[in-house]
Design a protein around this nucleic acid. Structure first.
Length: 299
DNA sequence: TAGGCCATCTGGTCCT
DNA sequence: AGGACCAGATGGCCTA
């Protein structure tokens, strides 16, 4: 995207080369900066691909080192320093510029490294988040939101399990709950408040009771059972996004619940969400920074 | 082609 | 003084 403010006076380049400084300095600084800039812009492409980051980092480093060395060769001082006091002879503008440039190049190197570390940490985070391998890589903001929501949903699950224990009811199907949590966090919906969970629990309980009743009468209805309890958590998209049918808040379409229930969330669309980044992105719409709903983070 | 995402550069600020 | 961190600017790539 071409930025129309390329010649904006706020631009560092323009700030340095703005009128007011001497002409000779202007040309020198401009040359140096354009050198650095062309060096750096040639680096931009090389780091874009994850596969080549190491090699490109190496290239960046060697180039930076080369630059620094060339600077050093210029600034080389005699081994026996004439002046040991702090009040050394004032450096010429050229030397000062070179010194500044060296510092800048070093700082750029550090900054690049820092951002690489940050990206590595994000990658690590992505690896511990449930993700279908067919899905596009989560963006940075999606990764953070997903992680936040996933952790929150899992902790809500824990509360729910504890509550279940206290009530001494039938144990929850953890696989089912895990899948539900994953789907909810992933889709930007919430598995949410305790009353909803209680309703879901009650529905689960009723369903299981009816199942038991039916089982006692005749052969077990496999299909019915599948309704409530997916057999195993698998990487298959359809089961990844399985949600119990008796989750009232999830399927609610009331205005109040819009942040919890994107319109495309119900079961028939889950597979589509998993396979289509576009549809998947839609599910985050109500969590965009402009959204009134907690900036995309729940609760 | 516009807009989103990203990597990088840069100058400022704070901390050690 | 030098490093870490931050936010703004810039330009490239990709996709709808």
């Amino acid at each position: 995207m071409m930025n129309t403010e390329i010649f904006n006076s706020n631009s560092p380049l323009m700030a340095v080369t703005s009128p007011g400084s001497s002409c000779s300095m202007d040309s020198e600084v401009t040359t140096i900066l354009s050198d650095v800039h062309s060096d750096m812009t040639s680096d931009v492409h090389s780091v874009n691909s994850d596969d080549t980051v190491t090699e490109n980092e190496e290239n960046c480093r060697s180039r930076a080192l080369k630059r620094e060395n060339s600077d050093d060769s210029i600034e080389q001082t005699p081994k026996k320093r004439r002046y040991t006091k702090s009040r050394a002879r004032p450096k010429s503008p050229t030397v000062v510029l070179k010194l500044k440039r060296t510092r800048r190049v070093k700082a750029n190197d550090r900054e690049r490294n820092r951002m690489h570390n940050l990206n590595s940490a994000l990658d690590q985070l992505r690896t511990v988040l449930p993700q279908n391998t067919e899905d596009a890589k989560l963006t940075k903001i999606e990764t953070l939101r997903f992680a936040h929501n996933y952790i929150w949903t899992l902790s809500e699950m824990l509360k729910m399990i504890e509550m279940q224990d206290k009530m001494q009811q039938q144990p929850l199907n953890l696989a089912q709950m895990g899948i539900a949590a994953m789907a909810a966090a992933r889709a930007g919906t919430a598995l949410p408040n305790l009353s909803d969970m209680q309703a879901m629990l009650n529905a689960c309980q009723q369903q299981q009771q009816s199942l038991q009743h039916m089982q006692s009468q005749q052969s077990p209805p496999q299909q019915h059972q599948q309704h409530m309890i997916p057999s195993v958590p698998s990487s298959d998209a359809s089961s990844m996004y399985y949600m119990p049918q008796s989750s009232p808040s999830m399927l609610s379409s009331s205005p109040d619940s819009c942040c919890y229930s994107p319109p495309s969330f119900p079961q028939q669309h889950h597979q589509q969400q998993a396979s289509s980044p576009a549809v998947y992105a839609d599910s985050w719409q109500c969590f965009t920074p402009t959204s009134p709903h907690n900036n995309g983070y729940f609760p």
